[in-house]
């Protein structure tokens, strides 16, 4: 069986690194590139973090391209990212020095090049704000058809994380998210709510200490920091959210998906950056199509597969097994 070509667009980030590790360990995934965006830290930092991780695993062959430094309309607000991931975006692990550099090409152009040259459709896995993917859709709309699907970590079906009504990746750049969700490419949305369902517990994290591989060691170092910042938010389990977007490519059966209407809110006083997800089957006594025509003056569409349930045990097992292979 040929491997699935995947581009990981990310802002590492502790959970991003778990996602990258799942992809590196999987014999189903061929990582075509890692592209970076601002988000958990500056794009310079997230790029350096990505290179550090690839070097650590001896995978300098995977091209890294640096992407957007700021969201579409406003400068990056770093305060929340610093609280969760520290100053560098990846506080905790200390990586060896190396000479790896990003390619001399913007993220959007590397993604475009790969899509253009690929015979198979490519899966894109955005794990941070959707700046680069929005730019791709705007610059190269003709390449959308070369995307198999997008499996992204972001958004919320109910409550948020960075605000009570929005999830961080979407909140950082709602306009870019809007472009992506309206883009017509199939999307699987691993929301903050669904990824919370797949949170790992102390016992799982403890078990990683017994894994004598590079992956196991890095996982423990990452969690040493990440559990502290999670506990500061009164969390008793740890959501390594981004890893779900990659786990879906490896084993979609871990997730229950509802294909429905999702629109990103851009204007709410409180709900800006919310992925407004239609979870009902009927509304105000009408079928959804009639309801959307009457109240939102547009069609009801199923533009997104929202994850509504996750197999926490299966996910933890997949992560653990992946760490053992690295």
């Amino acid at each position: 069986m040929s491997k699935i070509p995947v581009i990981i667009d990310c802002d590492p980030g502790h959970d991003d690194v778990f996602a990258i590790m799942l992809a590196l360990a999987s014999d189903k995934i061929d990582i075509k590139a890692i592209t970076t965006t601002c988000g958990n830290s500056t794009v310079e930092n997230t790029t350096q973090n990505a290179l550090n991780v690839l070097n650590y695993f001896g995978r300098g062959d995977i091209p890294v391209a640096m992407g957007c430094a700021d969201p579409m309309l406003f400068p990056l607000d770093r305060s929340a990212g610093k609280k969760v991931h520290g100053e560098s975006g990846l506080e905790g692990p200390v990586f060896p020095t190396h000479n790896l550099k990003p390619v001399d090409m913007k993220a959007v152009d590397l993604i475009a090049k790969i899509l253009r040259e690929s015979e198979d459709k490519v899966v894109i896995a955005p794990l941070g704000p959707l700046c680069n993917i929005a730019l791709l859709f705007i610059c190269y709309p003709e390449l959308k058809e070369k995307i198999a699907y997008i499996t992204l970590m972001g958004g919320n079906t109910y409550g948020g994380n960075v605000t009570p009504s929005a999830e961080y990746n979407i909140w950082v750049d709602p306009e870019s998210a809007y472009v992506v969700f309206e883009g017509g490419v199939p999307i699987i949305m691993h929301s903050i709510n669904s990824t919370n369902m797949a949170s790992v517990d102390d016992a799982t994290v403890e078990s990683w200490k017994q894994i004598d591989t590079k992956g196991g060691k890095l996982a423990v170092e990452l969690m040493d920091f990440y559990t502290i910042s999670s506990k500061a938010r009164n969390k008793k389990t740890y959501n390594i959210c981004d890893a779900n977007a990659i786990a879906y490519i490896i084993d979609p059966s871990l997730y229950e998906i509802l294909y429905t209407d999702v629109e990103v809110d851009l204007v709410g006083e409180h709900t800006r950056g919310r992925t407004v997800t239609e979870l009902r089957t009927r509304a105000n006594g009408m079928d959804l199509e009639s309801y959307y025509q009457k109240y939102l003056h547009r069609h009801y569409r199923k533009n997104c597969g929202a994850v509504i349930n996750a197999d926490a045990e299966g996910f933890a097992k997949l992560v653990t097994e992946s760490l053992k292979k690295l």
Partner: peptide, 17 residues
């Protein structure tokens, strides 16, 4: 304000604020 979400009661159950 938002045509998409007006009337929502945003309950900060996760303690974001």
């Amino acid at each position: 304000r938002s045509p998409l979400t007006t009337g929502i009661t945003i309950c900060d159950l996760a303690g974001s604020k």
